[in-house]
Amino acid sequence: MTSLPRHSTGKKLGLVIDLDTCVGCHACAVNCKEWNTGGYMAPLTDERPYDSDPMGVWFNRVHAFEAGEGAQSRTVHFPRSCLHCAEPACVTVCPTGASYKRPEDGIVLVDESMCIGCKLCSWACPYGAREYDQREGVMKKCTLCIDRIYNENLEEIDRTPACVSTCPAGARHFGDLGDPESDVSKLVASRGGYDLMPEMGYKPVNKYLPPRPRKDVAGAVGCGTRMEPVAGEAKGLLGWIDRMLS
C-alpha cells in the first residue's frame, strides 16, 4: 500500500549526522555496503568492479563540500543516505505497492518481490536515496538496518545501523526522533539540527548538525593569548655563559 499510513505510533526512527565531527573517512559507507550486501536488500550489486568505470549500489555516500570564502572557508564532509521522510513522495508515486512506510517506526522500505523497476521512486526523491540495481531489475535503498536494530541475535549494543556502529568519530547517532525526550532529539535541540531541502516539503526524519563556529584564535580553545618563557634566571655554568654573552 503506497498511501502513507494514516495512524502511526509516533515513533520516527532515524539518524542524526554531525557535520562538525565527520572526518570523511567513508567507514559508514563501507560498513553499510558490507552489512547490506548480505542483509534485507541483498545483494548490493557491483558492476565491472575492477574496470575503469565501476558502478554499484550504495545506500550511503560521503560527499565533501567547501563552504564560505577565503580564510573563513571550510571543508565539510557530508554523508548522504535515506532520510526516512515523514512525507516520502518516493512511496506515494510507487504504482505497485512495493514501496511503503512502516506505521510502527516510520522506516521507508521496498518489497523487492513487488518492484517492477520503473525507477519513478528514484525520480521522486530529491536526496538521491534510492539506487537502481540493474542486474536485479529492482530499486534498492537504505533499510535503517532493520535486520540489525531489531535483531535479537546481536548483543544489545550492536543493535544500531551499521553506519552508526562503525563511525570512528562518533558523528552518527541513531534513535527515535519522534520522542522529544530521546537522546537524539535532545542532541538535535541543543545543536540546532536541521532538515535538508525543507522547501521540498518531504519532512525528513534524519537531521544534520551544523559545523560548530570556527575557533581561530588561541583563546577560543583555552590557551593564553601569548606564550610566556617558563625558564627563570640560569645559574652555574650556563648562567656564567649567559652573562658573558649578554
Partner: peptide, 15 residues
C-alpha cells in the same frame, strides 16, 4: 539548501 551549509557562505562540491 541541499547541504544546509548556506550560512557559512557559498557552497561548492570539493569531492
Amino acid at each position: 539548501s541541499a547541504t544546509g551549509l548556506g550560512n557559512l557562505g557559498k557552497v561548492r562540491l570539493l569531492e
